[in-house]
Computed example of a mutant assay.
Amino acid sequence: MEQLQASSSIETYGVQGRMQQMSLITFLTVMFKNNPLGTFKSHENAEFSSAFSATYIKQVVGSEEMLELDYMGNNFRVGGKDMLSVYRSNIGG
């Protein structure tokens, strides 16, 4: 498994145009499925495509946690709220 982090800038818009710019950080834990070596041709860009499956994702906008999903740990949070608390209670977890 590999851990990845991607940082970006997002913009929010309202009726009067752009409201603000904020940072978006995405954390991923992935398992790569396919890693081809690619093809190389003289004077052309090389393409490398890889498929993966994610077992964990977390997104933070500004300083606010928007989403956290952990398949292995049965955790699912949206806006900081635990969406699986009733499920875990029902299965005795």
Rank of each mutant, 00 (worst) to 15 (best):
1 M>Y: 03
2 E>W: 13
3 Q>P: 02
5 Q>E: 13
6 A>W: 06
7 S>I: 03
7 S>Q: 09
7 S>V: 03
7 S>T: 05
8 S>T: 12
9 S>A: 12
10 I>M: 05
11 E>N: 07
11 E>W: 06
11 E>Q: 07
12 T>R: 08
12 T>A: 05
12 T>C: 01
13 Y>W: 13
14 G>V: 07
14 G>L: 08
16 Q>I: 11
16 Q>R: 14
17 G>A: 03
18 R>E: 07
18 R>K: 14
18 R>S: 09
19 M>S: 11
20 Q>E: 15
20 Q>A: 14
21 Q>R: 08
23 S>V: 01
23 S>I: 02
23 S>A: 07
24 L>Y: 02
24 L>I: 04
25 I>Y: 00
26 T>Q: 05
26 T>C: 04
27 F>C: 01
27 F>N: 04
29 T>S: 04
29 T>K: 05
29 T>E: 12
31 M>F: 14
31 M>R: 15
31 M>A: 15
31 M>W: 12
32 F>W: 08
32 F>I: 06
33 K>Y: 05
34 N>E: 14
34 N>Q: 14
34 N>F: 08
35 N>S: 10
36 P>D: 02
37 L>E: 10
37 L>Q: 13
39 T>Y: 10
40 F>G: 06
41 K>R: 11
42 S>Q: 12
42 S>W: 09
43 H>D: 15
43 H>M: 13
44 E>C: 01
44 E>Q: 06
46 A>G: 02
47 E>K: 12
47 E>A: 05
47 E>W: 04
48 F>D: 04
49 S>C: 08
49 S>A: 10
49 S>R: 12
50 S>K: 10
50 S>C: 13
50 S>N: 13
50 S>F: 14
51 A>S: 13
51 A>Q: 13
53 S>G: 10
53 S>A: 13
53 S>C: 08
54 A>C: 10
55 T>M: 06
57 I>T: 05
57 I>M: 08
58 K>S: 02
59 Q>E: 11
59 Q>Y: 03
60 V>M: 04
60 V>P: 00
60 V>W: 01
61 V>I: 08
62 G>C: 03
62 G>A: 03
63 S>N: 14
63 S>E: 14
63 S>L: 11
64 E>H: 11
64 E>S: 12
65 E>D: 14
65 E>R: 05
66 M>G: 04
67 L>D: 00
68 E>M: 14
68 E>C: 11
69 L>P: 00
69 L>F: 02
70 D>V: 01
70 D>H: 02
70 D>C: 05
71 Y>F: 10
71 Y>V: 11
72 M>I: 15
73 G>L: 15
73 G>V: 06
74 N>G: 01
74 N>D: 11
75 N>S: 08
75 N>E: 09
75 N>L: 05
77 R>E: 04
78 V>C: 06
78 V>Y: 12
78 V>A: 09
79 G>Y: 14
79 G>D: 11
80 G>L: 06
81 K>Q: 15
81 K>W: 09
81 K>R: 15
82 D>T: 02
83 M>A: 13
84 L>C: 00
85 S>E: 15
85 S>A: 15
87 Y>E: 05
87 Y>W: 07
90 N>D: 12
90 N>G: 11
92 G>F: 07
92 G>I: 04
93 G>I: 11
